[in-house]
Design a protein around this nucleic acid. Sequence first.
DNA 1: GCATTATTTAATGTATACGCAATGTAATGC
DNA 2: GCATTACATTGCGTATACATTAAATAATGC
Lengths: 224, 224
Amino acid sequence: MSQEQRTKSQTKTAIDGLKELIFSGELPAGSDHLETELAQRLGMSRTPVREATLMLEGQGLLEVRPRKGVRILSLSVVDMDEIYELLTELESLAARRAANAGHSKDDLSVLANAIDEMETALASEDRESWARADEKFHTELVRLGGNSRVISIVANFNNQVRRARAMTLYIRPLPEKSNEDHRAVLEAIAAGDAALAFSVHHEHRSNARKMLIELLKKHGLKHV
Amino acid sequence: MSQEQRTKSQTKTAIDGLKELIFSGELPAGSDHLETELAQRLGMSRTPVREATLMLEGQGLLEVRPRKGVRILSLSVVDMDEIYELLTELESLAARRAANAGHSKDDLSVLANAIDEMETALASEDRESWARADEKFHTELVRLGGNSRVISIVANFNNQVRRARAMTLYIRPLPEKSNEDHRAVLEAIAAGDAALAFSVHHEHRSNARKMLIELLKKHGLKHV
DNA sequence: GCATTATTTAATGTATACGCAATGTAATGC
DNA sequence: GCATTACATTGCGTATACATTAAATAATGC
């Protein structure tokens, strides 16, 4: 954790608080909440809550519906598919850029570590640890890509699918083959083979997308 | 134009007003403006202006800098390059999806018309008309792609580069070859050839990107 | 004179007040 | 009973008041 601001503004507090409430499921997808209720809950006046909800609406986490309250957004299968398609493209773009950037072995150590962590986690079937390492890998990959717009868009959509991912973590098959892909991507980047990095990662992500969508359909999860 | 809201909220008025002021250059890139000043200018209190600036900050049009005022963002060459790279990828994705969607000739008429309009405009060297038709083509292409996330992201970044595009409209060479690409993309989509639609459009966009970046550098436009 | 501290200023962040419009409820006419 | 209209409620949009604090300025000691 980075050093906290001397005094965090109420609006920031509200943003973080709401995010946390949403991610944790305390404000479930589809639920409605009046500004006054949220303000009370967060211990502040309506003003900063209002500003926070407007910003989070811009980030696709909720919807402000006058007189109906703030609605926490749920994602349909189509939404998930759209987002995964987008993430596939953007992460693959990042992989290509990362390969072209000529990163040193040292630069790539976070990726390598994440892969190791996933391996360890897989061996002990520790899905939570695996998920953390997986997210670390993908986040770092995008960071290495270096396109700041891509970085923030990907981060944003990862937030949007966070709940869904957590929800499916225990019902999906252990990603045995996944790490082969990760290693292949890492190697392509280390070798500076941009086309390969792109295509391998694209394939990897496409597969994950298909798997997830099938899973959602199979379990009748129309909204997550 | 769609029927106006009975009563447009002040916040919406502020958003539209600020956008217009930014796009028109009345609030030049890099300039700073206090909330009070903007409120007076827009004829309303600080509250809706504040909400508007926060939302526009989320859209990358300006930056809220406490005590320094709202700064209208300018884009560096690197920024432009990042954005064009992103647009290249997302529009190409849209082209692929459009090709896979099995659109009828009728569905593709807007694209076809836009191409014709560009041709006409080119013949009379009417750059403004050409730019409008070109934007129409690209917007429609993305719309046909049908991924709503992609649609809104592309729209957003088009807003961000709007000024820069206007600025370079008269100093860049007439895009003689450009329409060949557009036609090729249209044909690939009509034929349902997704891979071709993707690659042709990707190439088209990459070229435009290179051209623009060269142009900015050549003219010493470090910030637009 | 220069650096440091105290003071003032001003712009923001936040709370609050208030009117309006949308929603629900009761009353009325048929 | 049912539809329609009047009424009450309430949640939001906006203005405004106030507190806070960063920045600018003045004052002080050396």
